[in-house]
Design a protein around this nucleic acid. Sequence first.
DNA 1: TAGATTGTTAATCGATTAACAATC
DNA 2: TAGATTGTTAATCGATTAACAATC
Lengths: 218, 218
Amino acid sequence: MSKNQNVSIAVIRRLPRYYRYLSELLDRGVDKISSKNLAEIMHLTASQIRQDFNCFGGFGQQGYGYNVAALRAEIKAILGLENQLDTILIGAGNLGRAFASHLDFKSGGFNLLAVFDQNPALEGQVIGGVKVHRETQLPEFCREHKPKVAILCIPATATESIVSTLIECGITNFWNFSHYDIAVRFPGVTVENVHLGDSLMTLCYQISNKDHPVEAEY
Amino acid sequence: MSKNQNVSIAVIRRLPRYYRYLSELLDRGVDKISSKNLAEIMHLTASQIRQDFNCFGGFGQQGYGYNVAALRAEIKAILGLENQLDTILIGAGNLGRAFASHLDFKSGGFNLLAVFDQNPALEGQVIGGVKVHRETQLPEFCREHKPKVAILCIPATATESIVSTLIECGITNFWNFSHYDIAVRFPGVTVENVHLGDSLMTLCYQISNKDHPVEAEY
DNA sequence: TAGATTGTTAATCGATTAACAATC
DNA sequence: TAGATTGTTAATCGATTAACAATC
């Protein structure tokens, strides 16, 4: 099944999008699809789709195409979405609160255990179904519950010190919303960055340079 | 100054990160930097840095390096950060509220005018310094204020219909947080996607496949 | 002038696309 | 069997890296 050797980040970043489209097809009752049809729907090339899937093994059948439900299940397994990784969120500001209460962690493979904040006044509040703790309680909480992932919704200036505390507590996986490049100072940790400010500036560039438009990204 | 022809999206996505590092260097009082030094700090190659900057013109001086303040100003201009593009935000749920009150639109080149929501109960509320309006007021508001950009913090199911309304109102630039691929159905519009669910799944993959780690991204 | 470092061309590397044999 | 479509190899394209002449 998985031949999975050295799959490039470009392929991995396309997997969630395949997963979304396959989920939609499944909901609509479509049971098989060819790389050609999927390419039309997703605005990709059929070649790329076949190459991508073949990084992980042959999920299709010659002359037929791909079974939607089976392919979706394979991708779900590859992404590790059944894992339910125990997760904590750091920073109960606007952004942290929005994520804790709004995001569908379960279907993304994560299980939110608790929120932490510097501000003692927030202690005991419940956000998105979990309690807010003080940051000083991190070591004790981690010893007890052994979370694997931390979501960072804190200012860039606070990030370095929090990350080193979290690493000492055994956490090496980060979903990072702060404008601090964790991987530069802490090589070896796993970081997925969402730099909202950078994204906004990229949009600003595209709008300001419509005379030289850029290829659409999906 | 700008030779700016056909700059690839890969280069553009690095510009905000250059801007961040140059801002920090400037704050620390550093007035010149070589591509070699900057490469060490940012974990890039000196070659890539020089190639990137030369897409837009020669900002450096042989034998000396780059003037930090001047280079930062050039990048700011290239990104269009002085523009202050008039912007509206659609969707006053958790995410929309967090962005309206938390994000620094000004320094990202945007000027937030108003928030819109389907729910009439929210009408008149003030979030992040601007008023919440009903979605039905969109056409009138747009005729009067001519916003150029819409930030979409709405469910995927609502997006198609809202986007066609917005396009009729003259808005063709979108910062899209919904899991709906705008550019597929509305070719020609400018879209910057932030697919948080996709990002979460990518992190899930990386954690689930630590045996085959992926090159760090900054 | 000598040393440093850019701007730019050439070489390499990797990712995407095209082609086609295998096979359902 | 004939038609369709995959899996996979080969060709192309683009982006990154290396090299070096220009020049401050």
